[in-house]
């Protein structure tokens, strides 16, 4: 199972990408890849998991159904998180000048590949 390959492929196809990772809902990072040493998903896996869980609860409380995607915007970057099945999520960080639309598309393309590997 070479999750890194899928992540690498995703990153290489997205302009302005900083890093990507596959994370379990328990916050444990399955694999990650980064173009920037400061961007270490291992350090924030638990926080990411917490964001997703809170978003899931909020979506449910609002009556909006299951959470599919989260976008976080800062003054430096945008981070996308997408669910991979029920127990994992994939995240991708992109510079503000990067191609976010392409990033979302590439993540959506990567999800079935992860799901195939994880089953």
């Amino acid at each position: 199972m070479d999750f890194k390959k899928i992540l690498e492929e995703t990153l290489s196809n997205v302009e302005g990408s900083i890093g990507a990772g596959l994370v379990g809902m328990d916050g444990i990072v399955i694999d990650q890849i980064s173009h920037n040493s400061a961007f270490d998903i291992n350090a924030v896996g638990a926080e990411y998991s917490s964001i997703i869980k809170n978003a899931m609860r909020a979506s449910s409380n609002f009556g909006l159904g299951n959470t599919a995607e989260i976008l976080i915007t800062t003054d430096k970057a945008t981070m996308i998180m997408m669910m991979v099945g029920q127990n994992y999520f994939v995240t991708l960080a992109i510079n503000l000048d990067g191609n976010l639309g392409r990033g979302r598309l590439e993540l959506k393309k990567a999800i079935p590949k992860f799901e195939k590997e994880l089953t």
Binding site: E47, N54, A58, T67, E69, I70, I72, D75, A93
Partner: peptide
């Protein structure tokens, strides 16, 4: 809670100051 978790993770990743969070669910956005 989402904001606090996001703030912490964004700070740890050195990704600047958080501005917005968009949650997309099956039948709407938060």
């Amino acid at each position: 809670a989402i904001f606090e978790s996001t703030n912490r993770s964004v700070a740890q990743l050195n990704q600047g100051q958080m501005q917005q969070v968009l949650v997309t669910a099956e039948s709407g956005h938060i």
